[in-house]
Design a protein around this nucleic acid. Structure first.
Lengths: 147, 147
DNA sequence: CCTTGACCTCAAGTTCACTTGAACTGGCAG
DNA sequence: CTGCCAGTTCAAGTGAACTTGAGGTCAAGG
């Protein structure tokens, strides 16, 4: 099964064709040739896409991910960057844990108004803790295929 | 200390004035009056901002957060939504934990290339697991004040 | 041979959450 | 009174990550 076409890559990876073209343009993936106009991909592109998904899921931007591939195409992952990202993830996880507990509590809190619940107010302080207004974007799972 | 001005709110909350205006326009906060052109805020806006920060940190969008305030201005938080978000957070946290462990390992992995490391490949599978290409945005801590 | 339909390109549009710029206003210090 | 300057409005810009649309191409099936 040498060389698969964009529809098949999309099918197998769950990444839309338009996104694959976009990624190619960005240099995140490469097509191996063409049949007529049509891109032909090496099945290895699936690993690459998994790697990209990993990076995205870990909070790297596409640009950061792009920088992680050596010019020759093989991953040249910076171990220090990985460790740093792991630490960052750790902090994020701790925050999210507090959030989750707080939300969970708020969901069952008997106080008439959330603002009167001490636990909720504590949660508020946690949220406000690291400088109010610093978005952290977690758990943004969106459109699967668009309804 | 009745009524504080936008600069003070910015100062106390860490939210930029431009953002505060933007939030007001979006209906997320309200100024209590004006002295000349200048907005005057009730110090309670700080609680409100903390609430917004909480929502953002938990993964709610500004629009979702806006919907959480009753027309009268007091939080009308949907407990079911909170519980759902808590569950979502839980799933996110589990994923991030796997990520972090994987990253941590990758950072010290002795394999010559990450692609040859079984742990790394397992991590890749985890990342690819729930439909490759589903971004999850975690740990995006950015600009504090802009360098 | 001719149609079809998946794929192509390129430009523009979209969403989110803000930020920036230009032009203007008005309270307050001097 | 005057001028400063923090504040104001409104429109447009930003950046990330894609998606959409218009119009074009070409390999394969009938």
């Amino acid at each position: 099964m040498r060389d698969i076409d964009i529809a098949e890559v999309a099918q197998l990876s769950g990444v839309r064709a338009s996104t694959l073209r976009f990624y190619e343009e960005k240099g995140l993936i490469a097509s191996h040739g063409r049949r007529g106009l049509r891109r032909l991909f090496d099945p290895a592109v699936l690993d690459r896409l998994a790697l990209i998904a990993l990076g995205r899921a870990s909070g790297f931007s596409l640009n950061e991910i792009a920088r992680m591939f050596a010019p020759d195409g093989r991953p040249r992952i910076d171990r220090r960057a990985l460790a740093a990202k792991a630490d960052e993830l750790d902090r994020t996880i701790r925050r999210l844990n507090a959030m989750r507990d707080g939300l969970r509590h708020a969901a069952v809190c008997p106080a008439p108004s959330h603002m009167e619940c001490p636990t909720f107010r504590r949660l508020l302080r946690v949220a406000a803790a690291r400088k109010i207004g610093e978005p952290n974007k977690a758990g943004k799972a969106r459109r699967k295929v668009k309804s």
